[in-house]
């Protein structure tokens, strides 16, 4: 039951450290990027492995196709780009060349959600989870903190399956501790029996804060870190329905098709659905503002999560 701590981390740092460590161990690991050597935090990787850093320039369709060609030739490509451009520009390549062709590419969506704050909706990637969740055979992993990012990178390198890894830029505290990352499995970071908060990525630490605040108001909140969005841990959702009375989902993404929609699809197909609240962005382009401001604007703070949980517990 780790209380959130003060130190905050950019998960891209953990991502790069782990990738370099793995690249030393396995020469099949290569990085492919779209000019984003800096923003994908690959400067050190490029220094250490100049021939294994394939920068195709500002050309996302080419980038994903090249990644597929490498994967189909026995390499383990980590294809890195800002998430809005990787997923938006190359969506058909992700569908046809990666998922449908079963080429084991690790697609790394850097700086997702509203990490680019004031740069605006062109640079936000709140649609990525919805778009990608519709694609068969593509794993979707959203680590909550640096430890989990490292564990997910290690898993992805060995998985030999198409996967999208959403790597946060907006700083988060360490919350997962030494818990192992298991693809497809939610982890229970806090137990509770009134309401379950299912959170992913940057929202997990906020869900833990919300749970602590709710406890002060006499509401017992379970927190699930749903770090795999696809395939979803449906059993964890069913357990939450049996053992708590309501579910709140929280994601730095549009609720149209992302985590909230995925959880809702489980909830409404069970014989006894429970009430739900879906926190996220509801089909809206963000106004101007920093990431922190936008998370407040879209009611994605710990206080907002707590309010939703307490309201449902009544």
């Amino acid at each position: 039951m780790s209380a959130p701590v003060d130190e905050l981390f950019d998960c891209r740092v953990a991502f790069a450290e782990q990738l370099i460590e793995l690249a030393h161990e396995d020469e099949r690991i290569v990085a492919v990027c779209n000019d984003s050597v800096g923003s994908s935090n690959l400067v050190q990787f490029a220094k250490e492995f100049p021939t294994r850093m394939i920068n195709v320039g500002i050309a996302e369709q080419d980038m994903v196709g090249v990644g597929a060609g490498l994967a189909l030739s026995g390499y383990i490509p980590f294809v890195c780009g800002a998430s809005p451009f990787l997923t938006g520009r190359a969506l058909e390549q992700i569908k046809a060349d990666v998922a449908y062709s079963q080429s084991p590419v690790v697609l790394c969506g850097m700086s997702p959600g509203m990490a680019y704050g004031e740069l605006g909706p062109t640079h936000h990637s709140i649609e990525d989870l919805s778009w990608l969740r519709a694609i068969a055979g593509l794993g979707i992993v959203v680590p909550a903190d640096p430890q989990e990012t490292k564990a997910a990178v290690r898993w992805a390198a060995a998985a030999a399956t198409p996967v999208f890894l959403r790597v946060a830029r907006f700083k988060v505290p360490a919350v997962t501790g030494s818990r192992p990352f298991t693809f497809g499995t939610a982890t229970r970071l806090r137990d509770g029996d009134d309401v379950t908060v299912v959170a992913t990525g940057t929202m997990v630490s906020r869900a833990l804060e919300a749970a602590a605040e709710a406890a002060d108001r006499g509401v017992s909140v379970r927190v699930l870190n749903m770090s795999t969005i696809a395939p979803l841990d449906e059993e964890a959702i069913r357990a939450a329905m049996r053992e708590t009375r309501a579910i709140v989902t929280a994601e730095e993404a549009t609720t149209t098709g992302g985590l909230g929609a995925a959880v809702a699809a489980v909830v409404v197909t069970e014989p006894s659905p429970v009430p739900m609240r879906m926190l996220g962005v509801h089909r809206e382009f963000a106004p101007t503002g920093s990431t922190a401001f936008l998370l407040e604007h879209f009611k994605l703070t710990a206080a907002d999560i707590r309010a939703a949980a307490v309201e449902l517990a009544r």
Binding site: T51, Q61, G65, V66, G67, G69, L70, L72, S73
Partner: peptide, 23 residues
């Protein structure tokens, strides 16, 4: 590789050629 949508084969082939050179 699976093809059908147009404009996909050349990027994938470039990746295969990069791989052949790396190997």
């Amino acid at each position: 590789t699976n093809t059908g949508p147009l404009g996909h084969g050349l990027p994938v082939s470039v990746g295969m050629a990069v791989a052949g050179r790396l190997a």
